[in-house]
Amino acid sequence: MIKNYELSENKNLVSSDEMKNFTYVLNPNREEIGEVSEHFKFPFDYLGGILDDYENARFETDENDNNLILLQYPSLSEEGEVETFPYSLVWTTNENVVLALNHEFDKKILFDRVYDLKRYKHQLVFQIMYQMTHTYHDYLKDFRERRKKLEVGIKNSTKNDQIVDMIAIQASLIYFEDAIDNNLDVIQKFIHYLREEDEDGFADRIYDVYVEMDQAYTETKIQLKLLENLRDLFSNIVSNNLNIVMKIMTSATFVLGIPAVISGIYGMNVPIAFQDYKYMLWLILGLMILICTLITWVLHKKDMI
């Protein structure tokens, strides 16, 4: 899908039938990528890189002075898990901006602002990069809340439900760590390029994106460590809880076995002492209760039940 936008008289983005100021390419096929690449005269792989979910982040400038910055951003996969995917951001020599990606993102911020006609390209590039970076923080916040719920839920857990959620979060964080690390390297190269081109003002804005990305990287590493510790704690708690359950069941089986032994003896089809005593049933029941109570008290004092 290709959507085109241009700056209106009110200096905001509006739909257009032509590829002018901003072209938004979502989940494209090779034909659509070829159409956009041919129109703006930049290499096919500038946008074609997003067809590979594992494409490495990079920054390139071609012979026509078209610039590409390809970075990774987080989104839900088809399996419902949070993974990272590439997006291509191209600003052409004739002041156009092209964004191509395979998963929708919240682009409302791009259309809710007024642009400077002379620097709209810089403003668009910054807003897109900042929004994509902020998406990491949104998912990290969600992971943090899920981890806190897991910490509360595992205290009395003997099931594997929590560890399945931990594995899903940990897998996403591993994707984040690798993607953000690559993004940071590319953004540094981009900042260096801008300073060489005397774009210090724009470089300072992109540095803000770098700071946000670096914060996300730090939090990702912290959450990974916390999650690893939580998984170890979970294993210990589950093992301890199972030991407690088995201890209680073993003690209960031992205590309940006493009435079974006594009942078995007095249930034998042979002559037994006091068998003609009319209160013998109640005497046997009282004796069983007394013995069970005494044994239960002894087991409790020894912390065995």
Rank of each mutant, 00 (worst) to 15 (best):
D17K: 08
K41H: 07
L26N: 03
M129A: 11
F85S: 08
M19N: 06
E60V: 15
N27Y: 08
D52A: 05
P86C: 03
E31A: 15
A57C: 15
F143W: 04
T133L: 07
T135F: 02
Y46C: 03
T23V: 15
E32F: 01
M132F: 05
V114C: 01
R144L: 11
T133C: 13
M19K: 11
L99M: 08
V97E: 02
E18Y: 00
Q127C: 11
N66E: 02
V125A: 05
E31N: 15
N64E: 08
E78A: 12
E95R: 13
F111K: 09
S77H: 01
G34D: 09
P28R: 03
D138G: 01
D106N: 11
T93A: 03
V14K: 07
N29A: 06
S15V: 02
E38P: 11
V125L: 04
A100R: 02
L110E: 01
R113H: 09
H134W: 04
N66H: 06
L26S: 04
P43H: 02
T23M: 10
N56C: 10
N56S: 14
M129Y: 05
T84F: 00
V90R: 00
E104D: 15
K41D: 10
E81I: 06
I109S: 11
E78P: 12
K108Y: 05
F143N: 04
Y115A: 06
E83K: 14
T61G: 03
Y24V: 07
K118C: 06
N29S: 08
V14D: 00
V82M: 04
H39V: 10
R113Q: 12
Q127D: 14
N66M: 03
E104G: 05
R113K: 14
F22N: 10
I69Q: 02
L51R: 02
I50S: 07
L117I: 10
S37I: 01
D45H: 11
Y130V: 02
R30F: 10
D142V: 09
N64Y: 08
V90W: 00
F105Q: 05
H137L: 13
T23K: 07
N21H: 12
A57R: 11
E55S: 12
R144A: 13
Y136C: 14
D45W: 09
E31T: 15
N21E: 06
L51T: 07
N102K: 04
Y46K: 07
N56Q: 12
H122Q: 14
K20S: 12
S15H: 01
R144N: 12
K141T: 15
Q127M: 12
S15D: 00
N56P: 11
E18C: 07
L47V: 14
N66R: 06
L89F: 00
P86K: 04
I109Y: 01
E60M: 15
K108P: 11
L89W: 00
T93Q: 03
Y136W: 02
A57M: 10
L13E: 04
E55F: 09
F42A: 01
K107H: 13
S77L: 05
T135A: 11
L140T: 10
Y24T: 06
D17Q: 08
G49R: 00
D142E: 13
R119P: 08
E63P: 07
